[in-house]
Write a protein that binds this DNA or RNA. Structure first.
Lengths: 168, 168
DNA sequence: TTAAACTTTCAAAAATTATTGAAAATTTAT
DNA sequence: ATAAATTTTCAATAATTTTTGAAAGTTTAA
């Protein structure tokens, strides 16, 4: 396969994966494009490459900066902005984990905590079932949260070394 | 907070979480409803409880069965079908992990593997960057895959015990 | 059989989400 | 200051996803 075809295929696959996990397809594609670009690209180049509008490119790039996945660069003597992706895959994984933990896991943990304290009749099967499900989900969520917390602090080798060694 | 209000709040939170992770909101809500129901429910009851149409309820229930999260039950002397959710949260987590691994991770691993074999000019920075990104992502994905594989086979206590002990 | 009870299907409609593109805003060089 | 280059905004439009609801299909009891 040619490099150009391979790039297209990767951009498509990354976009699909993103959309299956609740991340805007275009955002994932722009990220993919920058991930496999040796050089930083301009908004113009990204627009052309992915056939998207200026407005879309601008908003998507802003979001990607918000996720901590890309950064703006400036070239000496040039007006326009260049965009460059962090290529360290472990950094990327941590950054995504960090953002999703903050945006999605933490709010749910908060709700689960509130719901853990609902008072009711211990003889009522409906109450008992509710309470048990909430408590169990809460425990699982806390474990996931702790593991992510560890991952955020860890070096890649140490993290996978620890996990895979124990599981071998 | 009243049990009724707490149930509503949980259904809403579970639905929101689902939609943020690429799972249809209604599907997550039906799952939530059954998770906190002591008794199996009929399609009719689910429709009323969540204010959704018969068609929607039917399709959603079929999908949930496809995900292995709920099952049909029949009551002696009754025509209609009842639906009941597995309440074991560790089973649920494994089931979701298993399905998403199969549906989403494995196809991506396949593509990454193909892309790992793209030939090109080692002197070309574009080729080198592409190759390195793909190789690194591939390694990460393989590690995730192995960890999920272990999780699928593991008992809850053993799994979290191993992870959290190492990380303490 | 027949018919009532119940479930499934799917084209059309509604709701949601993503994208466009042109105008407004901003920045920079002169 | 002026104007060209560039970026940002956002109302309108398009695309996608979800939901509806009524008709068709199936099952069961008598």
């Amino acid at each position: 396969m040619e490099l150009a075809a391979a790039k297209l295929k990767f951009i498509e696959a990354w976009g699909k994966l993103g959309s299956e996990w609740g991340i805007n397809r275009t955002m994932a594609q722009v990220h993919a494009l920058l991930l496999i670009s040796a050089e930083a690209l301009t908004t113009e180049e990204i627009m052309e490459n992915l056939s998207i509008s200026r407005g879309n490119a601008n908003m998507t790039l802003r979001d990607l900066i918000g996720w901590g996945l890309i950064e703006k660069q400036h070239k000496a003597g040039e007006r326009k902005e260049y965009f460059f992706a962090d290529k360290d895959v472990w950094n990327i994984a941590r950054q995504v984990a960090k953002e999703r933990k903050k945006r999605e896991l933490e709010p749910v943990l908060k709700v689960l905590n509130e719901l853990s304290n609902v008072a009711g009749d211990e003889k009522d099967p409906e109450f008992k079932t509710f309470k048990k499900s909430i408590t169990d989900i809460n425990k699982l969520a806390v474990n996931v949260d702790k593991t992510l917390e560890t991952m955020l602090k860890a070096e890649e080798n140490w993290f996978w070394g620890s996990i895979l060694k124990v599981f071998k």
